[in-house]
Design a protein around this nucleic acid. Structure first.
Lengths: 132, 132
DNA sequence: TTGAGTATGTTATGTTATTACATAGATTGC
DNA sequence: GCAATCTATGTAATAACATAACATACTCAA
């Protein structure tokens, strides 16, 4: 399990915004929230996100082009294996979920194909309990 | 299992392009390939794709913003339950995959959360056997 | 203190997707 | 027939998401 390096200024700012948000944010929303901290351009956000994703402290939700802080503060989430998300289309709430059995099933299929996996995306869209 | 309705002119054109492609295509690539069939605007493509997705004859690959014809020609793919994809980042080849056990595992977790699923995205990125 | 590496700033541009509005064709009921 | 309605299509403009290219500054070890 890799340690998380000291974050740089911009990485810290972006991570803070995501940590305090109550749901996933788009890169441009993050940018807007950091305007008064000096952010001017999308690249400042995307560059920080790139590193935060690499460190495993932030996840990208491909199906909604948004980013969310990992639900396991202080840990490198990569060590948990695959991550799955349930995303509520009504309220935006995201639930993160790790399941070894699921990983195993996916990976055994993938191995059967002689496919070398690098990254997996598992996202379920629908309505959360509160919004159903 | 719902029958697939008669496709309209634009839906047919878009589906043909996807069917004959050797991998996933972006909406704008489809547009370019249909310029000489009279297509002029993205919306012509997106509107057709929307229906084709609904009918289950085309899939959207969220992690690469692209579209691919379903691997089961002539059937409504929705009837197979969840669909997973292995996407080769080198050659672009996509392998489609259905697994009941996997569905079950995901859905039982989701039910445990009282979450009402509408749609699932499962995509594995990496290198295919030929490109590994 | 210089050179290498990393982080940042800035402008411009590329790519993906939708909004808004107009037109055309098909179908139904009268 | 001929309106009313519904679906499909056409077009322009714009919104939303992401990266390229280049310039500057910071940091740290040799």
């Amino acid at each position: 399990m890799n340690a998380i390096p000291q974050l740089t200024k911009n990485q810290t700012l972006v991570f803070d915004v995501l940590s305090h948000a109550d749901g996933p944010l788009s890169a441009y929303t993050i940018l807007d929230r950091l305007r008064d901290r000096g952010f001017r351009a999308p690249l400042q956000v995307y560059r920080a996100l790139e590193k935060l994703l690499e460190y495993g402290v932030v996840h990208r939700l491909e199906s909604i082009n948004s980013f969310v802080a990992c639900a396991h503060p202080g840990e490198d989430c990569h060590s948990h294996g695959l991550v799955a998300f349930a995303i509520c289309d009504k309220c935006g709430q995201v639930t993160e979920f790790h399941d070894h059995e699921l990983d195993h099933r996916l990976m055994s299929w993938v191995r059967g194909q002689k496919f070398k996996p690098e990254k997996a995306t598992i996202e379920i869209r629908g309505r959360c309990a509160a919004c159903a």
